[in-house]
Amino acid sequence: MLTQYGFILILSIFAFALPTAAVMMGWFLGPRRPDAVKTATYESGVETIGDTWVQFRAQYYLIGLIFLIFDVEVIFLFPIALAYKHLSLFSVVSTITFVVILLLGLLLEWRKGALEWS
């Protein structure tokens, strides 16, 4: 089993080295004449006004929050799928209860307006 992860490790080394080599090659082959105008922040030719740190809307955080709930749920659901052929009736009922509670949670978020994006 560790051999498998050894392969993933070697592949990840190559997968990292390949784009690095490409970027480096571009860096060596291309010209490098930076000047103040060229390295200025691109904004369709207009001078940039103010800070980059514009205020973001809290909706993004809400989406992340809902995502997190379902992400943790996925973690708990997948092992159940692997053992589903062996499960007894009690485990099946509890699994179904788990998913139903999640659905109810989604409905609650829907009712509370957490899913609106406008």
Binding site: I8, L11, S12, F14, A15, F16, L18, P19, T20, V23, M25, G26, W27, L29, G30, P31, R32, R33, P34, A36, K38, T39, A40, T41, Y42, T52
Partner: peptide, 29 residues
Amino acid sequence: LSKEDIRPANADAVAYFLAPILSVFGVIL
């Protein structure tokens, strides 16, 4: 390959360099 590699003046060097590499890294894996 032969184009100039422009880095904006106020960019964060490390993250600016790593971002494109990581995007390919994840896909190739």
